[in-house]
């Protein structure tokens, strides 16, 4: 029994250590790797870590089942969720932020007039182009008699998004 508790403790300790190790590996090695410079790469880097850490936490609970170890495992998994979400938000914000591009143009004075710089319009155009195609490719919308409409899956996603816009009383586009 004591051995099981020790194994559980070691697994949970490994899971707790996983997050700082994951961050340090990225800081010293990962950020120089080309594969982690695109959305898919960085997402899988975090997904793999989350799956590994969750498995360790679950193994820890199975090795020493108790309400306390279950609570620690839940805290570890939620902690990794906070870490990954924060990391990916910052990563994405600094890489492709439209707001950043606007601030950059305003800082260089290119915004001191009524005209919107062409390169900003181009970014907007790039953002819009292919949206219909990509939404269609993942089965959320379909073209029917030259009109785009929601699929059954798209209606569920749309309802969830409308709820997410309605709850905080937010309405916007782009």
């Amino acid at each position: 029994m004591i051995a099981f508790i020790e194994v559980g403790g070691v697994l949970l300790a490994l899971a707790i250590a996983g997050m700082p190790i994951h961050f340090l590996v990225y800081a010293f090695i990962g950020r120089r790797m080309t594969i982690l410079h695109n959305e898919r790469g960085i997402f899988f880097y975090h997904l793999a870590s989350a799956l590994m850490l969750s498995s360790l936490a679950c193994a820890g609970v199975l090795a020493a089942p108790s309400p306390e170890t279950a609570a620690i495992a839940a805290a570890i998994v939620a902690g990794h969720g906070i870490y990954s979400l924060t990391f990916l938000e910052f990563w994405s914000l600094s890489q492709i932020s439209y707001s950043r591009e606007i601030l950059l143009r305003a800082k260089s004075g290119a915004f001191d007039g009524p005209d919107i710089p062409q390169d900003l319009l181009d970014i907007g155009e790039q953002k819009r182009a292919g949206r219909l195609r990509s939404l269609s490719a993942i089965g959320l919308i379909e073209e029917h008699e030259h009109e785009w409409q929601l699929t059954a899956k798209g209606r569920i996603a749309s309802a969830a998004l409308r709820l997410l816009q309605w709850l905080p009383n937010m309405h916007g586009a782009g």
Binding site: I116, G124, R128, I141, H146, W148, L150, L161
Partner: peptide, 27 residues
Amino acid sequence: ANLLAKLHAESMTTAEVETLYDSRLMV
């Protein structure tokens, strides 16, 4: 996400989507 929410109310042609998400308006 906004496009999906808008399509809930009515279906739209490609031209209508382009008008709605005009680059100038988005900026």
